[in-house]
Write a protein that binds this DNA or RNA. Structure first.
Lengths: 112, 112
DNA sequence: TTTTTATATGATGGGTTTCGAATATAAAAA
DNA sequence: TTTTTATATTCGAAACCCATCATATAAAAA
């Protein structure tokens, strides 16, 4: 509705992708080059660069070039606080979903 | 990458929509019926019901029927803690974007 | 220079999301 | 019952997101 909500939604959208979350987690340990991240995350290089570009554009990452390579780092470490707080809620949901899954597995097999 | 990242991304995706954020904010004050929310948020009823359904499916909301109407409420108030923490980061980004915007407005008009 | 290595960008296509319109369901009122 | 009110669902079109492929740039090495 409001433009603040639109803005916040943009922010969440930046986090709403498994690879982007993996990138942020990988950069907890400090800045890394694109090729390091390619190795570590086992994705195609253009795919990675695309998502790195997006995260930089959204202001979550920044980059510096060092000779041949480009090093990315987290721009605002506050984002980790945020991700970590999110974990509590994920965990509750995980438990719920697991309960649901367990319930489904209890059902008679070969069924409806 | 990991399935935890996939799961977290799902969670963020649930929040990555202006109307869904507005719904959650509207329910800070307590449970509300669909029609109340339609009025307050000024959206079409089917659009609202669709997003309410999504939030319920993702475990963020729950609903109870009372006669003719259906009342929705937040399932885990922890989500507000989370949204509020997010605000810090939004604010930094807002300031940045405003600086950018201001810089653009300083540019000579009718330009490139 | 030419070649190689590292990274970024652009185009394409498949999948998903979104909104609005029409319709369906469910309960209350008449 | 029929009608009305409140909410949900379904459908289709437009917009968007994503991975891949091909190609471009930029710096170092040869």
């Amino acid at each position: 509705m409001t433009s603040l909500h639109r803005f916040k939604a943009e922010f969440f959208k930046a986090l709403a992708h498994p690879l982007r979350l993996a990138i942020l987690d990988a950069l907890r340990e400090g800045e890394k080059s694109v090729s390091q991240l390619v190795q570590e995350l086992k994705v195609e290089q253009p795919t990675l660069s695309q998502q790195l570009g997006l995260l930089r554009q959204k202001g979550l990452l920044e980059a510096r070039r060092e000779g041949n390579t480009v090093l990315y780092r987290t721009k605002d470490p506050g984002v980790y606080e945020f991700l970590d707080l999110g974990r509590r809620i994920f965990e509750r949901q995980l438990r719920e979903n697991q309960a649901l899954l367990a319930a489904l597995m209890e059902e008679p097999h070969g069924g409806n």
